[in-house]
Design a protein around this nucleic acid. Structure first.
Lengths: 339, 339
DNA sequence: CTGTTAGCGCCTTCAT
DNA sequence: ATGAAGGCGCTAACAG
């Protein structure tokens, strides 16, 4: 394929018979250009299909109007929804978003490489979403550009964050089960090194069951992906303990537990109540009817971008930690004990 | 927040006591530098936290090692999986990916703006995934940079494409139902202006049912999102027609149909068989047990990136149309008629 | 092996 | 209102 030379500002200037300065001013709409010249310049630009080189522009300007986003894995709906929300909000403010994801779970070394990559692209600010990343990986970049963490509460100076209140959410979910009459409740607790957020949810659930006079039964798991398998393996123990409900750290894990129950012939809700967490994406289908906790992902993404842009445009140097609530979604996978 | 001055190559040169060319050579590992200088340069770079400005670099180099990707909506697992696969493959080749999505469904004018945006970023090539986009929106860019279309077969000169063979897939799915003994089969047919792919699947299903001597019953819908509702509205008609199975253009639509059946008290598979299409993501959970057709998304993404990089690096100017197969996933939502 | 030099495409004073 | 000129940070000849 023979590519044509990409037209530069000089080509447009030549075509319009003016200087490149005039073109720059006309196309940017700043400075003054005669109506006649403006018209000729615009015609020339259109004719040539001129698209300003963002690289050259950002080299002379200090800013790129680009936000760098580090995600964990878009295949997880959590991150997909976050990305979509951030993109929409950025667009509203005429910012561009450059996303970095990893197919494999983002390790620390990967993350540093990704951040460096974004830095080299001269992004004006960073939204870091993979909650697993230790803060001290992030802090060294703070004197270089504004950073907002999405999905985890951060209190380090210079760092703003937007997160969902998973302690309140986990507790609300547990309270719901308690109100349905469940006494002995298995709670899947994911290793905190794998996911701080899932761990926090589990801890809150355990705590609320205990606080309200119920009997929590711990079901440890390394990752959310292991919950179903762990449940299956521990089934006899849980059953012997008189457990009537299982709480999971997210919807996918709840599906796995439901499947374990189904394959044992113990229909969901008849014998065991099962709860998830998240409440959006494909698993929110009413056909599944998961009882879950809906977290406001769109709002997290929106706020994160807003906070970042505020900082970029130096409208404030005040760090904020925004914490958002969600609500229990009553489905069919959790029922009253005496029903 | 007081940002520190971002170190440039000159700062590193000064720190190491050499010229900026030496720094460039040392850090790029090309050209020759004495071992001693290399060491001092690397130390200086590390000390200052130097990250080369990709903008400046790409201004002088012709290439950016960046691929621009236009997606429709990452919240759809189809695009999320595509993005993840492309990112992984690009990384393997040491390319970067800049993604553009739209929260709302991508309209033509949006798409042009997104592509222009990516162009201004000086991407080396483009992968266009929103299959809905008319080809003639894409062709004007072909003499500017290499483009690969993912998700739709393209034959326009200069355009390579990677797609799944939805005609074969739809037919296979229909053949599966026929082999289970279904005679009268409702097929949801999505408007081709909304989704060429969904429409193609539906057409193939209809055709195969007819070809094999069955009786297809058309169930038109504007979008995949409307299928469940349309089914519900047309239930009496379909029922009267003796329909025993419903075929959907994707898994989400199948969920909606299943829900319509459930809310009517007609359990799935007992009365009606229901099939989906896609077979990956959260809805692939064995708990749901969807009978569906698995399309190889990872492979589509991988191939698209490979094809593009081949073109970028001018290892070929041969256009290819890669077509990939999938396979029927036998679940529990479709059963034999006489079972 | 090393430093000097000339742009890459653009925006922005600064004269005119 | 306009054009000339300088420089953003970097790489790639080119001399030495």
């Amino acid at each position: 394929m023979n590519r044509t030379h990409t037209p530069t500002i000089l080509d447009v200037a030549a075509e319009a018979g003016v200087s490149k300065s005039a073109v720059s001013r006309a196309l940017l709409g700043q400075g003054s250009v005669s109506a006649e010249n403006r018209e000729r310049i615009e015609a020339a630009a259109t004719k040539l299909g001129y698209v300003a080189n963002a690289m050259a522009r950002s080299l002379v300007r200090a800013r790129t109007r680009t936000i760098g986003v580090v995600l964990r894995d878009v295949r997880k709906p959590y991150y997909a929804y976050l990305q979509a929300a951030m993109q929409a909000e950025a667009e509203r403010h005429d910012y561009r978003i450059v996303t970095t994801t990893n197919a494999r779970d983002l390790e620390v070394e990967d993350a540093v490489r990704e951040i460096t990559n974004l830095l080299s692209l001269q992004v004006d600010g960073l939204v870091i979403a993979p909650a697993r990343l230790p803060s001290d990986v992030i802090t060294p970049f703070l004197d270089r550009l504004p950073v907002v963490v999405a999905g985890r509460r951060e209190t380090a100076p210079g760092l703003s964050s937007v997160s969902t209140d998973d302690t309140a959410g986990g507790a609300a979910m547990a309270a719901h089960l308690r109100s349905l009459g469940h006494e002995r409740i298995a709670v899947a607790l994911v290793d905190h090194t794998y996911s701080h957020r899932y761990h926090e949810r589990g801890t809150a659930m355990l705590e609320e069951v205990r606080r309200s006079g119920g009997e929590p039964v711990l079901l440890p798991a390394r990752r959310d992906l292991d919950v179903g398998e762990r449940f299956d393996a521990e089934f006899d123990r849980l059953d012997a303990a008189g457990v009537t409900a299982v709480m999971c750290p997210n919807d996918a894990a709840a599906m796995d537990v439901l499947e374990a129950l189904r394959s044992r012939g113990a229909g969901p809700a008849e014998r065991y109540s099962v709860t998830g967490y998240d409440g959006y994406g494909p698993l929110a289908s009413p056909y599944i009817g998961l009882t879950t906790f809906r977290t406001p992902q769109e709002e997290v993404g929106r706020s994160a971008v807003d906070l970042l842009i505020e900082k970029i445009e130096e409208r404030t140097d005040q760090d904020k930690s925004v914490s958002l609530r969600g609500s229990v979604i009553v489905g069919r996978t959790a029922r009253a004990v005496h029903a």
